[in-house]
Simulated assay, not measured.
Amino acid sequence: MSEQHPALTIVGSINLDITATTDRLPTPGETLGGGVLRRQPGGKGANQAVAGARLGGHVRMVGAVGNDGDGEALVAAMAAAGVDTTGVGRSGEPTGTALINVDSHGENQIVVCPGANGTVSLDGVEFGPDEAVLCQLEIDLAVVAEAARRTSGYFALNAAPAMHLPAELLERCDLVIVNETEYALIPELADAKLVAVTYGKDGAAILERGVKVAEAPGVSVPVANTIGAGDAFCAALVLALRSGLDYAAALATANAVGAAAVGDAASQPALEPLERYMPAAGSR
């Protein structure tokens, strides 16, 4: 494995994002006109895989899509970004879909229909000691726990959406990544060995067993879409840490990547190689 381009396997969700952009979000029972509709690749797993590949990592995706046109298009989009998609299974369930409302400030409301994501399997999947494995919680928790048990190297978990985490899974995590809301909703993270917490425009911090050991300020940019920013941050942080950066430099790098993602309207934003986002004084 090259230090500059670590190996990263994503085990997670693959969705079609159907996004309606309006000036503001509707209130319950309200119908808004004048929306702009977009269909684009999404899903936390696929977003992180594409971000990792565009940042220069050697990335493969383990997930599932339906035997439908949407599934074919999503797999093709990942492959075009440089992701190894041989670990993506085909399911009799429809491809996962997210229905998203986004306002002019980038705030959003999301409804996820998991579909084929509920059929993700690790049958025939092997994890090498030199690759990092990154999971999220948009697939079955049992599959995430199995991936953690079977990973012999570095295991990271983006604990989103927030839910109770079994002690065995949490103790296996070399890194857990959450936003400030998720951190508050998962009290057991206070005792986790290493947790990265994002605070939006206020930056991010790393905690060891609940004690802050590093932080980095946020990067202010015009907001086009917040949906893919957290996923880009996750991929960037794992790659930065695995590339040898210290905690503060890795956070600063991931914050810069997240800011670049916020400024892009796509859930799978265009990104430059990871080195372009590294702080000059701490790149090695």
Rank of each mutant, 00 (worst) to 15 (best):
T9R: 00
A259L: 15
A148D: 00
M278L: 10
A280N: 14
S243T: 14
P217N: 04
L165I: 13
A256L: 11
A265Q: 13
T151Q: 07
P269R: 08
A281K: 14
V197R: 04
L134F: 00
L274Y: 08
A64C: 07
E107A: 09
T95I: 05
V75K: 00
E180L: 03
T19Y: 04
T226M: 14
A240C: 12
V59L: 09
A132F: 00
V195H: 03
E275A: 15
G45W: 01
A240F: 07
P28L: 04
I18C: 14
V213S: 11
T31D: 05
A232R: 06
G63M: 01
E93Y: 13
M278I: 13
N47C: 07
N158T: 06
L175S: 01
R209D: 02
A98V: 10
L37W: 12
V195W: 02
V120E: 06
G56F: 00
A266Q: 14
G96I: 08
T181G: 03
R150H: 08
C234Q: 04
A259C: 14
G153V: 02
P161V: 11
D84C: 07
G263A: 10
P114A: 12
P114M: 07
V144P: 00
Q48F: 00
T97K: 05
N15L: 01
A254Y: 06
L251A: 07
V195L: 05
L241A: 05
A261L: 06
A79I: 05
N67P: 12
G230A: 04
T198S: 10
P269C: 08
G89Y: 10
G118L: 07
Q268P: 08
M278R: 15
N225W: 00
A116S: 10
R38H: 15
E188I: 02
A98W: 06
M61E: 01
T9Y: 01
E3L: 15
L251Q: 11
Q48N: 09
R149Q: 15
G96W: 04
L251Y: 09
I110C: 03
T253C: 12
E72R: 14
H164M: 13
V238Y: 01
G29Q: 11
P6G: 12
G87V: 09
P187M: 03
I186C: 00
A236D: 10
G228R: 06
V133T: 08
M1Q: 10
L157C: 05
A160G: 10
A260E: 13
A260C: 10
V88P: 07
A261N: 01
A248L: 13
A190G: 12
G12N: 02
D231M: 05
